[in-house]
């Protein structure tokens, strides 16, 4: 089965279509695929515990690994203790590693 890496760049307040990514990612996960969502740019705004409309709880409950770009978090002044549990801070190096795994499909949103 292929690995899927979704790179989410949009935040749920500006872009209601972030729910489509969550729908697709959770569906693929239910079918037994390895799915990772990497949050970058304004998508990291959804990591905050108090963020409404965030799709992240749904992703995390389904067992999807959710990573948040450290650079994007720093740019926006979001500290790790402000983030929802189970959202892991990651570097762009880790994203490159994920992209280069064998049999991996990358989807940017």
């Amino acid at each position: 089965m292929p690995n899927y890496i979704f790179i989410e760049s949009r935040d749920p307040f500006d872009s209601p279509d972030t729910s489509f990514l969550a729908d697709t990612a959770t569906s693929l996960k239910r079918r037994g695929n390895d799915v990772t969502v990497f949050l970058v740019q304004n998508a990291v705004l959804a990591t905050r515990k108090q963020a409404r409309k965030s799709q992240l709880p749904r992703l995390i409950e389904s067992g999807i690994a959710v990573l948040a770009d450290d650079f994007s978090l720093r740019e926006r002044g979001i500290q790790s203790d402000e983030c929802q549990a189970n959202v892991k801070t990651a570097t762009i190096d880790q994203l490159v590693d994920l992209l280069l795994r064998e049999n991996t499909r990358a989807i940017w949103h």
Binding site: S9, V40, Q41, N42, D69, F71, T91, I92, D93, L95, V96, L99, L100
Partner: peptide, 19 residues
């Protein structure tokens, strides 16, 4: 857009890894 910055960061990171 910030996407340009992200793209260039990915390129830089990959090159530094020897990719």
């Amino acid at each position: 857009k910030a996407s340009t910055t992200t793209a260039l960061r990915i390129v830089s990171a990959a090159l530094k890894k020897g990719i």
